[in-house]
């Protein structure tokens, strides 16, 4: 953990707020207020919080799809102003191109991005590698609508990876899957991320979820958010050993951490549920 604290941040959120203004009514919503957070190289950070607390808003700002109303978002010390291939995103609804096959979806970034495009031969090797990595071999020529939910998820994941980003942003990527598939993909995600690699060689991952178990299982640190407006309440270190396997979920350390997080957000989770009724 010492190494984690000393390193210069890969991504730095410095006092960011985001206010949405509805164009027609002029109504203002403060989605997130004064969020500061440093994420270091090779870290797996999970953000949990009740729905509507601004998790996607934060992720979109790191992706460069939205700008903060106040504060700065920086990567390697340089402010983020636009999307770029060094930050890959896996969206909750996967956003696969329906007119492209699995293969064509995965090679989309390396083929069409503005900088450092790859030639056909290199691309072929790269795409094949990632298709194998996410176990989509044999489905290369299928269209997204011919795939199961889990396969679509893996395709979206491979599309992001094949662009070889330094930072991977994932917005509730497993939320639409059934429970068994989700558990399997969590383990697979850790394997692909490279749990055994030294920290410097891992990708930095920011992973949004509302599953507390999921966050504890995956993360090095869990940022717990609160609502109205969205703030970061606590950042918890998850000092569970890696590589992590299914059996970890049954241990008392795991349960204790999960329960601690649940206690932090339960009041707000109740409020959010009752608000919406």
């Amino acid at each position: 953990m010492e190494a984690l604290d000393q390193a210069a941040p890969k991504i730095r959120l410095d006092g960011i707020s985001k206010e949405y203004i509805v164009p027609r009514t002029g109504q203002r919503t403060l989605a997130i207020a004064d969020v500061s957070l440093d994420i270091v190289q090779g870290e797996f950070l999970c953000i949990v919080g009740p729905s509507g607390c601004g998790k996607s808003t934060i992720l979109n700002m790191i992706a460069g799809l939205a700008e903060p109303s106040a504060g700065t978002v920086a990567m390697d010390g340089a402010p983020i102003r636009a999307p770029g291939s060094e930050r890959g995103v896996v969206f909750q609804d996967y956003a696969l191109f329906p007119w492209k096959t699995v293969r064509e979806n995965i090679e989309f970034g390396p083929r069409f991005r503005s900088d450092a495009r790859l030639g056909a031969a290199e691309r072929d090797k790269l795409v094949r590698h990632y298709i194998d990595l996410v176990s989509l071999t044999g489905a290369e020529h299928k269209y997204p609508h011919e795939l199961s939910g889990g396969m679509r998820q893996r395709c979206a994941f491979a599309r992001a990876l094949a662009n070889e980003p330094e930072v991977l942003l994932m917005d509730e990527p497993f939320a639409a899957l059934d429970a068994q598939t989700r558990l399997i993909l969590q383990e697979e995600l850790l394997r692909i991320w490279g749990e055994d690699l030294p920290r410097a060689e891992r990708k930095t991952v920011i992973f949004i979820t509302h599953g507390i178990d999921e966050a504890v299982f995956l993360a090095d640190r869990v940022a717990v958010m609160s609502n109205h407006p969205g703030r970061i309440k606590t950042v918890m270190d998850i000092d569970l050993p890696r590589p992590r396997r299914e059996s970890l979920r049954a241990t008392s350390e795991f349960q204790t951490l999960a329960d601690e997080i649940w206690q932090l957000i339960r009041r707000e989770a109740y409020e959010a549920t009752i608000d919406r009724r």
Binding site: L65, P83, F91, A95, F108, G109, F112, R113, S114
Partner: peptide, 25 residues
Amino acid sequence: NPGLVQAARVLGVGRAHIVRHVIWP
């Protein structure tokens, strides 16, 4: 679907390619 355009943007794909390979199809 704006999500598809965003998906292309976060891959670092430029405007012309987005028009040709996302918006057109």
